[in-house]
Design a protein around this nucleic acid. Structure first.
Lengths: 98, 98
DNA sequence: TTGACATGCAAGCAGGCACTTGCATATGGT
DNA sequence: ACCATATGCAAGTGCCTGCTTGCATGTCAA
């Protein structure tokens, strides 16, 4: 009943991780340092390792995909794990309507 | 930027709390014992106090409203805190379209 | 090659969170 | 009044999680 959804919900539970999703929503292919500086700018400051670990959690939930390019690690947002959750907890009256 | 949304996301992070929302989605006005037995039936077994504390978290996030009736405590589901979150993290290309 | 840049890995620490334990309160039926 | 039911409250415990620390690896430019 709670397959990968648990990882997604736990990933969304942290404000730093949500800020990372916000940052990646604006532009894909950002590098780790890029995300670190952006976090520091928006007030959600954390160390590089902390952010790296947060990204690991997001990647484990399938929300972020990581690809390597040279010495850089680029990150892409993937919101497909969120789609099945958008329609959860909608009242039955409102659900089955054309 | 992260007002009450933080409480909502943290509330959704726990599988027992999500199961409680599922239970309340089927029928409003369930009592605490009713929810406890239902949790035990669906395999998400926890003690009464544990479930009570989970409901406190859900109520703190505004997802559940509590009303008293006699010696019973009745619970109602409120999904309105979820509505602003449903449209979050949608790509900009898909967002502003009539 | 050398050095600077960008990232990886792993152990340790502290706070939070889920859960329990034990007892107190209140409502309703008889 | 009595008792069972239904819930409230608070302190204690163990684990999980976010963060740090320190060092290792890999990549590019000169």
């Amino acid at each position: 009943m709670d397959d990968g959804a648990d990882a997604v919900f736990r990933a969304l539970a942290d404000p730093t991780r949500r800020a990372l999703l916000d940052a990646l929503l604006e532009r894909d292919g950002q590098t780790l340092f890029e995300l670190c500086t952006r976090m520091a700018d928006t007030g959600v400051g954390s160390s590089r390792q902390a952010i790296s670990q947060h990204i690991d959690v997001l990647a484990g939930a399938g929300l972020v995909h990581v690809r390597r390019e040279g010495r850089y690690r680029l990150h892409d947002l993937d919101t497909t794990p969120l789609h099945p959750l958008r329609e959860r907890w909608l009242r039955a009256e409102k659900r089955n309507r054309p």
